[in-house]
Design a protein around this nucleic acid. Structure first.
Length: 323
DNA sequence: GGAAAATTAGATTCTCGGAT
DNA sequence: ATCCGAGAATCTAATTTTCC
């Protein structure tokens, strides 16, 4: 199996491997290429009392050099997946956590951090999560990390609706991809397409009970409605977010979310996003202790968003001169 | 081969305080 | 009194994996 310059060699019998490897080396050498023994790994499994035990010592050689053997706890990276002696490993969230932390610490403006998230970080995850071991819980946990990151970058309240973050920008959201709803949907579409292929080998693989079970599990995770539509619906019917419906279908009213307008500071952008998503930092919020909620301007009322915008005497002058 | 254990998805319940 | 919404905790039922 070959993909670009990566390839996997499968062999039934351990003893025939050296012959095949020699043939492969010859094939590449004749075309001016070489197999790199340092970037190659061998995985050789023996049956022992009904269990499969991976060989610990190096067993294969390339160009006279022994190549690393994959042991029971080892794994190697192939096409974005970690592969161990028991097959493709379930992805873990450690890498995502590290990447989010690094982006957050980087000296970037908030919109740049979000761009990195949307355009590089999440797309990079997509292939790795289309993995047989993936579960709804894992995807939900990954989404939580991403939401926490967005809320930190834009200084959102903890109770900001998910739909604000996940709905597409054209519907009034921030357009951050949701892994829990998106990955199974894409994964299922790919598997389904594979099942319609003409190739007899692929058809046989797709018909095997193991793969059939995977496909039905992914289908169940995916649901029937495209995630895009679900988030749009949630956003436009949510109590706090229904107002964003009016931003729907008008590219100009959300273009600034993608590209910070000339002359705006990062802080300006954060403030604007907060205004749009009912997240302006007023002190009259649930998780503030009672005495700390008084309006900083008039000390008369609790500082809620509507008080600042429409009721407080401090802002009254600004409201009435605007003619 | 089948029982036991572990994992999973999904539902339910609770928290926070203001608005109605 | 009820609702808003996320998140955590807890529970149930279903399914998968492990173990003998």
């Amino acid at each position: 199996m070959a993909f670009a310059y990566d390839f996997v060699l499968l062999e039934e019998e351990e003893k025939s491997v050296s012959n095949t490897l020699a043939a492969v080396e010859g094939f590449f050498r004749a075309r001016g290429m070489e197999v790199n023994p340092r970037k190659s790994v061998g995985l050789c499994v023996r049956g022992y009392e009904g269990r499969s035990i991976p060989r610990v010592q190096p067993v294969f050689r390339i160009g006279g050099q022994w190549i690393r053997s994959i042991k029971a706890m080892d794994s190697f990276r192939y096409l974005g997946h970690q592969v161990g002696s028991f097959g493709v490993k379930r992805p873990n969230l450690h890498a995502l956590q590290m990447m989010l932390e690094r982006v957050h610490r980087a000296p970037l403006k908030p919109d740049q951090k979000l761009s990195v998230l949307r355009q590089y970080l999440i797309p990079r995850l997509l292939y790795g999560f289309q993995n047989p071991g993936v579960t709804g819980g894992l995807l939900t946990a990954a989404d939580r990390l991403i939401k926490r990151f967005v809320k930190r970058v834009l200084h959102f309240n903890i109770h900001t609706p998910d739909a604000v973050i996940h709905a597409a920008a054209r519907y009034g959201g921030l357009g951050v991809y949701c892994l829990r709803s998106g990955v199974p949907f894409t994964f299922y579409r790919r598997l389904d397409q594979l099942g319609r292929e003409g190739d007899p080998v692929i058809r046989a693989v797709m018909a095997s009970p193991r793969v059939a079970r995977l496909v039905s599990r992914i289908r169940q995770l995916a649901g029937d409605v495209p995630p895009d539509q679900v988030w749009k619906e949630t956003l436009h019917t949510g109590q706090m977010t229904a107002g964003l419906r009016s931003a729907s279908g008008d590219p100009a009213s959300s273009a600034w979310l993608r590209a910070r307008p000339y002359g705006w500071s990062g802080k300006d952008l954060v403030r604007a996003v907060q205004l749009r998503t009912e997240n302006l930092p007023v002190v009259g919020v649930p998780y503030n202790p009672q005495p700390a909620r008084q309006c900083k301007g008039c000390h008369q009322r609790i500082e809620s968003l509507s008080h600042v915008l429409q009721g407080c005497p401090v802002t009254h002058g600004m409201r009435s001169v605007a003619k």
